[in-house]
Write a protein that binds this DNA or RNA. Structure first.
Length: 801
DNA sequence: CTGTAACGGGG
DNA sequence: GTGTACGTTACAG
């Protein structure tokens, strides 16, 4: 331990947190940056895992029986403490242990003891618990008092401090893999390139095939191992704070990990020198790098932008307006084999992937830095949370700080019961079917949070009987107003903070400051808007069906009222509305009426409820509730509920559907669209189609023998195997449905490579692919299956004779 | 109708 | 790691 160590006090910025085990005890590790931007590590040995038990009976007897079952002396302390649980003040038993795993070891035994009613807070991850209890947050400054040791700072005291977010170094990377069989086989197929792009301007491709004399961003190394080692070195040389990539949780990091095993080498880009920490959240893998928060931009984009496809090229096109070429995954290995110009093209493509991912990351990371700061968990974790989880971590922190016991997550039967409870959601006005022109969309987004605040909707204020005021219209129960509920209190605070930011935004002209204010208010808006969904989310700790139901009910009342005002007071036709939005016909000469309507509504609405103008559309096609398409004045098409972009649909179906939608929205000509469909049908019948447009792609997710059900891609995979092909799990099976006597579609699935143009089944493609895809749209204008087929049967009959 | 399996991104 | 997604679609039976 050494002699006397000087006590120091310093400011530090918190990037990441975890714990390590020393002498069977958990030690918190904080990954920090000092005020000069240098990384350092701090350790806190003074924090122990604990959980609570609700007791009935004599505390001393219960404590005695717990002591008796604790043979391995895991329990360090047993004490009775006063806590709040919803409205009650209760005495509970606090059980402190030495290590988080000790909680797992003792919690069930304790739960089953006589006199123990329930256990609580037994599943809160240790590092996350530390952040809550110390009231500190990642992506923010701390003041730490402790002793400086050689490798780290020993923490004695830690607390929140003030400061600006420092510049954080972001690395974006991408790997390319040799994949002659389509799916790369990690035991044989090497990583051929690692591309790096950083916020500090680094642009580099690491590879091991020497044909790059003219590309200065390429660094050629002897082999795959050297490429990975160089990747390691660069991460440490530049000491990046954040690592990002596209689909890195699911592909790049797992693949690197598998290659390390195959090559039998070590690899670390973590700040503590440890390897990658891969864990699976049931089909949703996650890669952790200690001390360097890792954000997978794919999962971030998916949560923030509604797109028809999240292929990187499409995302950067839609989100950044950058047109980027894609090398089809299947052909990638050919570029490597061909060498020369192809290889240089591959290197450029690979670097471009890392660069655009960096740009996407820089667009979204500020939002997640704010969310991390507000809810108080790491950037790594926050980027992987659903909005419900964000709300829950905020509530857990607030609840704990106020001396409350946190409610348990539902398990087994309780979850099933909740999931089975249904209630009426938002009000959806059936659309005026077909095509409409000049549509203004108004959005009601702050409706739900303000309903919760205004009506004080909370578990603790809910009153089922003897209601006199603040009654939920359709249900008769009410919410007490004498004191503010837990959730409305937090929500009011969030909304209040957001309003202050919005006010500052109005008064500020500095672009950089404005962007920062905007991101802050946006983070608060996302959180505030998630509370309603949270209360009705079956896995929520603070779930209450009656609360969610009440919010929905009151919101329906407000939106209907606004629709009535539009129609009765302003003679504006409302053609559609869903939950918090309304679609109104606003002809050119009525634009000022729409503005008056908006003013009037906002003047009348109580409190913070506000109707916003969302956008204006030239034309719209409305099919049914939640299924419509809009085209704006720039020709940009927005589609809701009609998408058919999955690879398990034949390309011909997707292409035809897209063409039909375009004709309807751009030309407003249903007959032209119907004619197009008839042409496609005839082409299919007469076999004037490309076989590749008929291929349906489905992934074989497990071995052939582990399938219980007969499925088309399974049968095709079997036939592929019988034909001598190697069939491995993960393979994408391309198949075509062929003619035959078997009535099961699956039994008529042939591997695409075995099918000739004369063999496919036209009826399947017409009835199961083309017609279902286009009928979704044609339904809206009253065109039927029969109408679309009109004139076609005769033609095919002629062909028959 | 219910139960099972697959979709997403990546190469 | 005091843990284990999600909402939706299609087909078989």
């Amino acid at each position: 331990m050494g002699g006397l160590l000087a006590q120091i006090i310093m400011k530090a910025f918190l990037l990441d947190i975890d714990y390590e085990t020393q002498d069977n005890r958990a030690v918190i590790r904080l990954f920090l940056k000092d005020e000069d931007g240098r990384f350092f590590l701090a350790k806190d040995r003074n924090f122990s895992p604990y959980f609570y038990a609700f007791i009935s009976g004599y505390p001393n007897e219960i404590i005695q029986s717990i002591k008796e079952l604790d043979e391995k002396a895991r329990i360090k302390k047993l004490e009775i403490v006063e806590k709040k649980y919803f409205k009650e003040i209760i005495n509970v038993l606090r059980i402190t242990v030495g290590h988080p795993q000790d909680v797992v070891a003792v919690r069930e035994k304790i739960n089953e003891l006589e006199g123990i009613d329930e256990i609580h807070e037994y599943d809160i991850l240790f590092a996350r618990r530390y952040l809550i209890d110390k009231n500190i947050t990642p992506m923010d400054w701390l003041e730490i008092e402790g002793k400086k040791r050689d490798e780290y700072l020993e923490v004695d005291m830690i607390k929140r401090a003030q400061g600006e977010v420092p510049e954080l170094k972001v690395l974006s990377f991408d790997i390319e893999v040799y994949n002659p069989k389509g799916v790369p086989r990690s035991d044989r197929d090497p990583i051929i390139m690692v591309s790096l792009a950083s916020s500090k301007g680094l642009k580099k491709v690491l590879t091991w095939k020497d044909e790059f004399e003219d590309l200065d961003f390429v660094e050629v190394l002897p082999d795959e191992t050297s490429v990975l080692k160089r990747f390691e070195d660069i991460v440490f040389e530049e000491d990046f704070d954040i690592v990002i990539g596209y689909n890195t949780d699911n592909f790049d990091f797992p693949y690197i990990e598998k290659r390390l095993k195959a090559l039998d080498i070590s690899f670390s880009i973590a700040r503590d020198g440890s390897g990658l920490k891969l864990s699976g959240r049931k089909n949703l893998p996650e890669a952790k790098i200690k001390g360097r928060p890792h954000a997978d931009v794919y999962s971030i984009v998916k949560k923030n932008v509604k797109l028809s496809s999240y292929v990187l090229e499409n995302v950067v096109g839609e989100v950044l307006g950058i047109q980027k070429e894609k090398i089809p995954g299947k052909k990638l290995y050919q570029y490597w084999d061909e060498g020369g110009e192809s290889l240089r093209k591959l290197a450029k493509y690979s670097l471009e992937d890392a660069e655009v991912t960096l740009k996407l990351g820089q667009k979204f990371l500020p939002l997640y830095e704010q969310l991390a700061k507000i809810i108080g968990q790491t950037l790594h974790d926050v980027t992987r949370m659903t909005t419900g989880q964000l709300v829950e971590w905020l509530l857990m922190r607030e609840s704990s700080l106020k001396g409350n016991i946190i409610p348990n997550r539902p398990h087994g039967s309780e979850y099933m019961a909740r999931a089975g409870e249904t209630y009426t959601g938002g009000y959806v006005k059936s659309p005026k079917r077909g095509l409409s022109e000049n549509i203004a969309v108004f959005d009601f987004r702050s409706l739900y949070p303000s309903v919760i605040v205004t009506h004080n909707i909370d578990l603790s204020t809910l009153k089922m009987e003897n209601c006199k005021e603040n009654i939920v219209p359709e249900f008769g129960y009410c919410f007490e107003t004498s004191s503010r509920g837990f959730i409305p209190e937090i929500l009011k605070d969030l909304v209040g903070k957001r309003n202050i930011l919005k006010k500052k935004l109005k008064e500020n002209n500095d672009p950089v400051e404005r962007l920062f204010l905007h991101v802050q208010q946006h983070a608060l808006k996302i959180l505030a808007n998630s509370f309603y969904g949270y209360m009705g989310y079956p896995r929520a700790r603070w779930y209450k069906r009656e609360c969610a139901q009440a919010v929905a009910s009151l919101a329906r009342m407000y939106i209907k009222k606004v629709m009535t005002i539009a129609e009765e007071d302003f003679s504006l036709e409302v053609i559609y509305g869903d939950t918090d939005s309304l679609f109104v016909i606003v002809p050119e000469n009525k634009r000022n009426v729409a503005i008056e309507f908006l003013k009037k509504v906002n003047a009348d609405l109580p409190g913070i409820i506000e109707l916003e103008y969302e956008g204006y559309y030239k034309r719209g096609l409305f099919v049914t509730k939640k299924r419509y398409a809009l085209i704006d004045e720039n020709g940009k098409i927005t589609v809701k509920g009609l998408e058919f972009v999955r690879r398990d649909w034949a390309a011909i179906a997707r292409k035809t559907q897209e063409k039909v939608l375009k004709i309807l929205l751009k030309d407003a000509n249903p007959e032209k669209a119907a004619k197009l469909v008839r042409e496609v049908i005839i082409n299919i019948k007469e076999r004037r189609v490309k076989l590749e447009d008929l291929i349906i792609y489905t992934q074989l997710t497990k071995s052939i023998k582990s399938y219980k059900n007969i499925e088309p891609h399974l049968i095709a995979a079997k036939r592929l195997k019988d034909g001598g092909e190697e069939v491995v799990p993960g393979m994408i099976i391309g198949y075509v449905i062929v003619k035959g006597t078997n009535k099961l579609i699956s039994m008529r699935a042939e591997p695409a490579a075995f099918v000739k143009l004369e063999n496919y089944d036209p009826d399947y493609y017409i009835d199961n692919q083309i017609l279902p895809a286009v009928l979704r749209i044609f339904e809206a204008i009253g065109y039927t299956r029969d109408y679309l087929r009109e004139g076609i049967e005769q033609r095919s009959l002629k062909g028959w004779f």
